[in-house]
Design a protein around this nucleic acid. Structure first.
Lengths: 150, 150
DNA sequence: TATTATTACTTCAAGATTAAATTATTAATG
DNA sequence: CATTAATAATTTAATCTTGAAGTAATAATA
C-alpha cells in the first residue's frame, strides 16, 4: 500500500518510520499496562518496583535518572507506593540531603511474585517475530536511539 | 556488551527488545516534544492540529480514535486549543449528538507554518540510519505492532 | 408509540508528568 | 569562618491521561 508522495521521498520515509515507531510502542505499552493492572499496580509504580527489585536500595535522584522521569514525578510515585506499604524512604546518614528508597518486605514479595509473570507475558507477545528478527529490530532501535542522544 | 543470562535466552532477548523499543521511543518523543514546544504547543495539541490539518473537519470520536486516546482526553485538549482560538467545535445538524472540530483560520496558519518545519526536524534526526535501514526498521516495527493487535 | 439500548460527548476523580520555585543540606571559595 | 555555589528533594501550577459515571440525542424494538 503505497501512498502518494507528500513531502518528498526522504521525508516520507522518515515520517513513516516515525509513525510506525509510535504505533508499535503504543500497542506494546498498552498491552504491558493492562497486564500490570492485573497486579493492582500502575505502570510507573511497576517500573519503580522493578528497578528497586533489580538494583536494590538507591537514591531518588538515581531512580529518576534510570526511569527517565523528573524528580517531582518520582516524589509522587514513591509517595503512592509508600502509602501502599511497598517501598520505604530512608534518609542517608552520610549526606542528609539524599534519600534512599528500597522495597519493604511486602514490596519484595510483590516483586518476586509478579516480575517473572510479566517477563513471560512480554516474551509471549513478541513471538510473532523470530529470534533473529527480534535481535535485528533491537539493533536498529538501539542505533536510532543512540544516534539521537548525541 | 553481553550481560549474564537472567531469565533464559528467549526471555532475555524479548526483554532486551522491549527495553530498546521503550528507550528509542522515549528519546524520539523527547526530541519531538522539545521541538514542538518551540512552537508554543504541547505534544497532544500538536497532534490534534496535525490531524485536523491533514484530515479536515472531523468528529471528536473519530479524532480520539485516530490519536489513540480516550474521549475524555480529547475533550480537554480541544478545550485548551479552543481557548487559544486554534480550533472550533461545530455541532452537527444531522445528528445533534456529534460535534465536529476544525481548525480556525488562525489554526490553519499555525499548521501551515509549523508542520513542514517539524517534518524536516524529524527527517534530519533519523539520518543516522540509511534509507534502507529506515525502511527495514519500519517493516519490523509494523510486523511487531500488527501482530500484537490481534 | 413507549420503552430500551446505543452512541456521542462531558464531567469527575485519581494518578502521571513536567518545569519552575522553594527548602534544606553540603561543598567551594574568598 | 562567612558567604556563595551546587545538590537533593519537595511543592506548586498546568496539562495530560484514563476509566467510570452522567447527560443528551438517536436508533431499535416490543
Amino acid at each position: 500500500m503505497k501512498t502518494t508522495e507528500k513531502y518528498g521521498k526522504k521525508t516520507d520515509i522518515a515520517l513513516s518510520l516515525w509513525v510506525k515507531l509510535a504505533r508499535a510502542y503504543y500497542t506494546c505499552a498498552k498491552l504491558s499496562t493492562d497486564n500490570i493492572k492485573t497486579f493492582g499496580l500502575t505502570r510507573p509504580q511497576f517500573c519503580v518496583i522493578e528497578c528497586l527489585g533489580h538494583q536494590g536500595e538507591i537514591t531518588l535522584t538515581l531512580l529518576s535518572s534510570k526511569l527517565l522521569v523528573t524528580g517531582g514525578n518520582i516524589t509522587l510515585v514513591v509517595d503512592n507506593l509508600e502509602k501502599e506499604g511497598l517501598v520505604e524512604r530512608i534518609r542517608s546518614k552520610e549526606d542528609r540531603r539524599t534519600i534512599n528508597v528500597k522495597l519493604t518486605s511486602k514490596g519484595e514479595g510483590v516483586f518476586k511474585n509478579i516480575f517473572k509473570k510479566h517477563a513471560d507475558f512480554i516474551t509471549k507477545n513478541v513471538q510473532a517475530l523470530t529470534e533473529k528478527e527480534q535481535v535485528q529490530l533491537g539493533k536498529l532501535l538501539k542505533k536510532l536511539g543512540t544516534s539521537l542522544k548525541s
